[in-house]
């Protein structure tokens, strides 16, 4: 006899966690320019997943394909198990989007921005108003409820945009540079809220240029460059794998470079320093101090920024 549950068995390791986004050889071309070059990745339910990369890496384009507002030109992309080409409305119903640019509606107050946005989702008025009040409270904006947008500070606008993205109780939140241009206080507040959203079971996907933000928030991340994914993993694992635990920085002099060359360590040369990637900083420092004619030497823990610069290179991107 045919039984429905025979058709598909989910993997039986631990709790069953579905993939919210699955991209396979995803590609986006604008004419001859390949903005996203056949990337594959998947985002698991309940995690914070980051997209890092220099300007023009293809992060925002990838976000826009996930949001179903920019059609892909190749590969497959499924969100909540649905194809972005055929089910944009159903996908967008469960999506919250925080765009890079503030696009709040300046004709209306903070509160009205939320209720009008709720109407786009077809949320009934009473429910929309209740939810708008809750969200203003959640983002600590309840006192700004009746203010028009131009009277709000940059941090308040950003928080209001996040509140707006939550109006439809989305299962997946997409944030393109959520804390861009904000002061440290506002950034910490937003990080706290994003963590709280994750704790409630939401899945978050974000892009950011702030590597401390990525290291702090993301469970997993990818680093993109020129449309391709260079690496994928947790921030700690990436640091360990590509840099080591520590960095020893020495002033860049011909003597130091020659000396380090003979030490058999991995290092990188910047404008004014030599950066040595290592898991044994004490040994490296000692060798440097003993054997080389050195200038200033410092040791510090390795960070995601070291991975980022190592992988994407130091020349400026326009």
């Amino acid at each position: 006899m045919f039984r429905e549950h025979d058709m598909y068995h989910p993997p039986e390791e631990g709790p069953v966690i579905g993939d919210v986004i699955v991209a396979d050889n995803l590609e986006k071309r604008f004419g001859n320019v390949v903005a996203v070059d056949r990337v594959s990745f998947s985002v698991r339910e309940g995690e914070i997943f980051g997209f890092l990369g220099p300007n023009g890496a293809g992060k925002t384009t990838t976000m826009k394909m996930i949001q179903c507002v920019s059609p892909k030109t190749g590969g497959t992309l499924r969100v909540f198990g649905m194809d972005v080409d055929t089910h944009p409305r159903e996908i967008k119903r469960h999506l919250g989007v925080v765009p890079q640019e503030n696009n709040l509606d300046p004709d209306f107050t903070a509160f009205q921005n939320l209720t009008i946005y709720a109407r786009y989702f077809g949320i009934p008025r009473r429910e929309a108003e209740e939810r708008a009040m809750e969200l203003l409270e959640f983002m600590q904006l309840e006192e700004k409820s009746a203010m028009v947008i131009e009277k709000l500070s940059g941090g308040m606008r950003r928080r209001l945009i996040i509140a707006r993205a939550l109006i439809n109780a989305p299962k997946l939140l997409i944030l393109d540079e959520p804390t861009i241009g904000l002061d440290p206080q506002a950034r910490h507040l937003i990080w706290g809220k994003l963590r709280a959203l994750q704790a409630e079971g939401n899945t978050l996907v974000l892009t950011t240029h702030y590597l401390d933000e990525a290291a702090r928030l993301c469970d997993r991340l990818v680093i993109m460059d020129r449309g391709k994914i260079l690496v994928e993993g947790s921030p700690e694992a990436l640091v360990r794998r590509h840099v080591g635990t520590d960095i020893v920085e020495a002033e860049r002099t011909p003597d130091v470079v020659a000396c380090i060359d003979g030490m058999g360590v991995r290092y990188d040369v910047t404008a004014d320093t030599v950066q040595i990637y290592t898991n044994e900083p004490e040994d490296v420092v000692r060798t440097l101090l003993d054997a080389c004619r050195h200038g200033a030497v410092t040791a510090r823990p390795a960070t995601l920024e070291d991975v980022f610069l190592k992988l994407t290179g130091r020349p400026l991107r326009e």
């Binding site: 967008k92 765009p99 640019e101 696009n103 509606d105 786009y120 439809n168």
Partner: peptide
């Protein structure tokens, strides 16, 4: 200037 259309098409509206 206001990107209002972008804001709307991020919802189920096309």
């Amino acid at each position: 200037y206001r990107k209002t259309f972008d804001a709307i098409i991020a919802t189920p509206i096309g």
